[in-house]
């Protein structure tokens, strides 16, 4: 089983590299650098302090945005999930807010927060908070009513009900939400950096676009893809395990 999966990953990576090389051959050096050239350039970038300064700035913004999105989303989802009517009212509204293309709001964010860290964080959090809230809300609402009844007959206080019954029971859904929210927050922070920052990887991207520096653009894309895919893979594994465990318990 493990061996199979390793082979699958190798096949995927090799397949992507082949597709990349073919695209490179088709469109030429100026539009798309070859995998080999990109890896060489990326290795050079990784040894550059300038790159790590920007990566650090992005990481900091991402961290703040993640904290706001996760804590805020959980709080919103939990508060609305506890009350049936509040949940019914909020559910379609949250879905609408989630599906609004928030890229369009960048001028508003810029006008409100100005150029800098707070605008990036606001943009990231704005992308991530809704999926976390939606998944949490649905997780709480889908809890087996027996659990709630049991907690009531045990006379648990409200906070103990939340922390010992509701949150653990909704954990698989919440983790799915955190995974989707994580991806959305990365995307939001990067977009924020592209439009509203003077440092960070998103800022490097937009500069590479302006200068038409395809090598840098491809290296950054590669780096971001690898980081995002790794983080996503880890969260996905946790996600699958929790869902399997709760399915086994039910």
């Amino acid at each position: 089983m493990m061996k199979h999966r390793a082979i699958d990953y190798v096949l995927l990576v090799v397949g992507l590299l082949v597709v990349w090389q073919i695209c490179h051959e088709l469109v030429g050096e100026y539009a798309l650098t070859s995998p080999l050239a990109t890896f060489a350039y990326a290795a050079k970038e990784l040894g550059d302090a300038h790159f790590w300064n920007n990566a650090g700035a992005s990481a900091l913004a991402l961290l703040y945005a993640l904290i706001i999105a996760m804590v805020g989303g959980l709080a919103i989802g939990l508060a609305l999930g506890l009350n049936r009517l509040a949940g019914d009212v909020a559910d379609p509204m949250l879905i609408t807010l989630f599906s609004v293309p928030k890229v369009t709001l960048y001028p508003v964010i810029l006008l409100v927060f100005g150029l800098g860290l707070s605008a990036k964080v606001a943009f990231g959090a704005l992308h991530g908070i809704f999926p976390v809230a939606i998944f949490t809300l649905n997780g709480i609402r889908k809890i087996n009513p027996i659990y709630v009844k049991a907690s009531r007959s045990l006379n648990l206080s409200r906070s103990r009900t939340i922390f010992t019954v509701l949150l653990p029971a909704a954990l698989p859904e919440i983790v799915s939400g955190l995974r989707v929210g994580f991806a959305a927050t990365i995307l939001g922070t990067l977009i924020g950096e592209m439009f509203a920052a003077t440092e960070g990887l998103g800022f490097m991207l937009i500069k590479a676009i302006d200068e038409n520096n395809v090598e840098l653009l491809m290296s950054l894309t590669l780096f971001l893809f690898l980081v995002a895919a790794t983080a996503n893979g880890i969260l996905l594994a946790i996600d699958h395990r929790l869902h399997r465990r709760s399915a086994a318990a039910a």
């Binding site: 699958d8 990953y9 096949l11 995927l12 397949g15 992507l16 469109v27 539009a31 798309l32 994580f182 991806a183 959305a184 990365i186 995307l187 990067l190 977009i191 592209m194 991207l205 676009i209 038409n212 395809v214 653009l217 950054l220 894309t221 971001l224 893809f225 995002a228 895919a229 983080a231 996503n232 893979g233 996905l236």
Partner: peptide, 22 residues
């Protein structure tokens, strides 16, 4: 499908429109 699954799962974590300039 098994091979492509990880790709699908992380596709939206990457800002695909960096390919727009290309």
């Amino acid at each position: 499908r098994r091979i492509l699954d990880p790709l699908f799962a992380s596709y939206y974590a990457v800002p695909v429109f960096v390919f727009y300039p290309l």
